[in-house]
């Protein structure tokens, strides 16, 4: 068992996000944290309200991009930031909850708006018992 975690990786114009977990769902959760951390410090986002997200897609890496894009859409239209994620993947269906709060510009000092998750450096794979989900996001 590993402790789920995330990291950013370099892309010249934009930024890469990478989540690590014991299964794809955990890796997806961690990658979502990495994405929120592009915008602001995670510790500044209160997990006070919850939304639900559902995505369906047969290919696992495309499902990963759909998941991130669904979050980007919710952030944009609800004017919210999220800091806690629970993902369940069954067959080709992802159901998730995302917890966060409305953007408070003064407190969060959001750095950038995320335009979309891309297929650049996109990969979802297992390596030595650890699941990794990654891609570059356009900011």
């Amino acid at each position: 068992m590993i402790t789920p975690h995330w990291q950013h990786f370099e892309h010249q114009a934009d930024i890469g996000i990478r989540g690590f977990g014991n299964n794809p769902a955990e890796a997806f959760e961690q990658a979502a944290l990495a994405m929120s951390a592009i915008i602001t410090e995670l510790s500044l986002i209160k997990a006070s309200s919850e939304i639900k997200i559902v995505c369906e897609e047969a290919e696992q890496d495309l499902l990963f991009v759909d998941w991130l894009n669904a979050l980007i859409y919710e952030m944009a239209t609800r004017h919210m930031l999220f800091s806690r994620f629970e993902v369940v993947i069954e067959n080709r269906r992802l159901t998730a909850s995302a917890r966060g709060e409305p953007i408070d510009v003064k407190r969060h000092q959001p750095v950038v708006e995320i335009k979309g998750a891309t297929y650049t450096e996109l990969a979802v794979y297992e390596s030595q018992g650890e699941w990794i989900a990654q891609c570059v996001v356009d900011v």
Partner: peptide
Amino acid sequence: AGRSMSRRQ
């Protein structure tokens, strides 16, 4: 101009 350095750097 184009970036010469990532945002993180």
